[in-house]
Each structure stands twice: as C-alpha cells, then as structure tokens.
Design a protein around this nucleic acid. Structure first.
Lengths: 233, 233
DNA sequence: CGCACCTTTGAGCTCGGTCAAGGGGCGTGG
DNA sequence: CCACGCCCCTTGACCGAGCTCAAAGGTGCG
C-alpha cells in the first residue's frame, strides 16, 4: 500500500517528518504499511521487541504501562497524527508500554530497520526525533513533579486541561474532550483512583465548571479549571 | 583550552560521542570550553535560554525543577561522564531544570550552535542523542508509574538501588552511595518528605539493611533493599 | 429489554504529611 | 585546640487527604 493522497496530506503534519520535500515524503510513504486495529485491540504489548514505529492516522490509542502487581498507569493518549513506538529507532530495545486502540484505528507502520534507514538518510528526521523525545522528557518531568508535589484536584485539573488542548472540540455546551475516557482512565493518567476522580468531577459539575457523563467530559468554564490548576481562589 | 589528554580519555566514555574516531573526538574537544563551578553554584537555572550542552568531568551535579509555589523535585543526579543540558540540541528552548554543583565540579561545554553543528556533521552523535533521550523517557515513565502506584518505602528502596548503581563505591562496610545527599534530597528524588525518609532509614538501619549518617548512606545488605523494592517478605 | 460495564456515594481507616522540639556532626574562627 | 554555631538529622504527636471496600444507580449496546 502507500498511494492514498489523504495519507500524504496527513504525513505533512507529522512532527517526525517536518521539513521534508513532497517527493521524499512520497518515498517514505511507499515504505509504510497500514495497520488497522479495532477497539480494545493492541498495536503492541509492553515487553515486545520494538518492532517498528507508528503514525496514527485515524482513531485513538492509549499507551499503558503495567507494574509487576498489575497496577496500570496511562502514560499517553495518542490522537492523529501522533507518533508512537519511537523506541524502535534504537536497536534491540523493547516497548516499555502497551499500545491499545481506544476506538477502531488506523496507523502507518515502518519496521525498525526501515525507520533507522530513513533516519540516517534524512538528518531532518533524526533532528525531529530528538525534538519529539525532548518534549516527552519535559512532559514527564513536569508530570512527575506534579505527582510528587500537588494535590489530586489540581493534578486532575491539569490533566483535563492537557487533554482539552490535545483533543478538545468546541461544541454548543463547551469544549468536549473527544476521547472515550472512563473515570478509571482519568485516574490512571493523574495518579489517583477512579473514586476520587468521580467525586471531584461531581463537585466540579455542581460548580458549573464541567459537565460529566459516561466516558465523556465537557469543559463549560475553562477558566475555572485554570484557577484550580494554579490554586487561585 | 582543549588539549588535556585526560579529557580525551573521558570523552570516549561519553554516551553522546560513542562510535566516533579519535580524530573526530579531538576536533570536538577543541571546540569545547571547560566550565568550573564550585559547590552550591549553578551551571544554569530553570528558565534560562538553553545555551549549550555539558559533559561532567569531575564532581557531582543535581538537576532540580521548582514548581510555582517553590516546591522542589530532584530530577536527576549527574556523575562523570554524564551529559546534561541536552535540550540545547533544539533551537530556542529553555532549560526545564536548574543544574547545581553538589561539589566543586568541572564540565566541558559546547554552545547550542556548536553542538547542533556537531550533531549534523556526525550522524552518530544524533543517534546517540536519541538513545540518551529515549532512556530518559523510559526512566521517567518508570518513576512516574512508581510514584503513582507504590508506597514510599518501596520508592525509596528503588531510589537507593538506582543511586547505588549510578554512584555506588564498594567499601569495607558495604556499598557507599558516593554522593552528598541530604534526607531532603532523597525525599525530593522519591517524592516524599525528609521526615519520612529519616524514619524509613532508621528502620532499615535497625534491620541491618543500611548504615546511614550525615549526607551518607551505605548499603550493607543489598538483597534486603531488593526485597523491599519488590515487596517480598 | 436485559445485561455488562461505567459511575456515584457513603463510611471507615491508614499512610504519610505537618508541626514542634531537641540532638549531633562538622567547619570555622578565636 | 577548643568552642561556637550552622546545618542536618531524629523522634514524637497529631491529623487529614485520599484510598479501600461496599452497595446501589445509570447508560447504552446487542
């Protein structure tokens, strides 16, 4: 596969391939394989050898890490045109997380050998990878600091703000977080329990800040969330 | 500066420059500047424009991030020949942490422009950077998960094990963590308070697992720590 | 329309954070 | 060389945010 013009268009927006010429993109696209995974299916599992890199075209994917005792943490939600499996740039690694489709999803795939080849042919790709990873390091540093120093309510507010920036969609009622996230998911992102998330959302709903439903959060008063995140009155 | 043969020798072990020829290393070394910072001094402060990259030659450096309220988290301890300030590979960024000398320290320095130039001249350097960053991402993911799901005692055990791997020195009494870390520092790494760290170390000392002193921890029975970290009897 | 799964809410408890007080090592200056 | 003083460390007492467990109420899909 590889000739869908729609895909070329999306590839242009992929941070990993920024700064490449149309023709170069075409070549890269030719090497890709399209992988479809349906809801609750896996792109890969934690511990699998890092087989290759993915660029999400359609759907939603979550990256989850499980501890030995089976406790889960949701590391990241990927929306198109996001990249995941970057660790495949390195030889002999394994995936540190599992990648699950939250909805039916499509992703372009390059094997580890292919993407390593691409990165060495196009220095821009290597630099873009460095940028992507550096951003991830900073993001995790910030989340780590928050988890270490802040109360649950604040962390949850920041989580919702992040998700709104990433996957928010304006509707009549407010900004809809366009992801099918359960209370459990929100808890796993913010480092708390589903019960605490539920209680906090209920409070926020009473205060008119959000409107919450089954796997659904709409932000009605974004400034209210920011005030909680920054601990203002 | 740049002709100290000692430095060439150390540069060989720097992950960033792995796989380069002696001659290439010499060239890179020529472009470096030696920066000395004495105890409690700063290499850079959080928020400063990312001026360049450092390779620690002597001493100890800690990377600390401060929240708006002034709460600190210790992100990483750097020992020779560690790299810090990698974010300088990107244009226009700022340092997300402050880098403080825990002891009198020396580091080689390349300006952002220089290291960007080096990375584009030597693809191996770009690949090495990707490796370093990917490891950091995984490290923070793991620490994030631990902080989200595990008790303080376990997290502290893991912290001590990590530090022992990184800066452990065998002595007659056991493995000395060769870093001047206060209880406060240990608390900031593991996401707890200095009081809790103190209490736990006292317990461990009673059980013969460690020997603790002023800015000093010696691991006497490593297996005991591992058992705590893995939650075995 | 029934069932699986998601969500809400209550009650109780505990881990670990906070505050307070005092002890001890180490460097510095007299 | 000793003593003062600055940090660093320890320990106790208290308490509260949020976790756990339990039960019941919604929601939407097949």
């Amino acid at each position: 596969m590889g000739f869908d013009p729609e895909h070329t268009k999306i590839l242009r927006q992929v941070s990993l391939f920024a700064g490449l010429e149309s023709q170069e993109l075409q070549g890269i696209l030719l090497a890709a394989r399209l992988v479809q995974v349906e809801e609750d299916g896996y792109y890969f599992m934690q511990g699998d050898p890092a087989a290759g890199i993915f660029v999400l075209m359609e759907g939603r994917v979550k990256l989850v890490q499980v501890s030995l005792e089976g406790q889960q943490v949701l590391m990241r939600v990927v929306v198109p045109p996001g990249v995941f499996g970057v660790v495949s740039l390195l030889e002999g690694g394994e995936f540190p997380v599992s990648a699950t489709a939250m909805q039916n999803s499509k992703a372009l795939f390059w094997s580890a050998a292919e993407i390593q080849q691409i990165a060495s042919s196009y220095p821009a790709v290597a630099m873009n990878t460095i940028r992507v990873l550096a951003e991830q390091v900073q993001d995790f540093q910030a989340r780590f600091r928050e988890l270490a120093t802040e109360r649950v309510e604040r962390r949850l507010a920041r989580t919702i703000i992040r998700l709104a920036n990433q996957a928010g969609r304006k509707t009549a009622e407010g900004v809809l977080i366009d992801l099918p996230l359960t209370r459990q998911d929100l808890a796993e992102i913010s480092g708390t329990t589903l019960y605490t998330v539920s209680r906090i959302l209920s409070q926020w709903e009473e205060r008119g800040i959000v409107q919450a439903g089954r796997e659904r959060v709409v932000v009605r008063f974004p400034h209210g969330l920011v005030m909680i995140a920054d601990d203002l009155p």
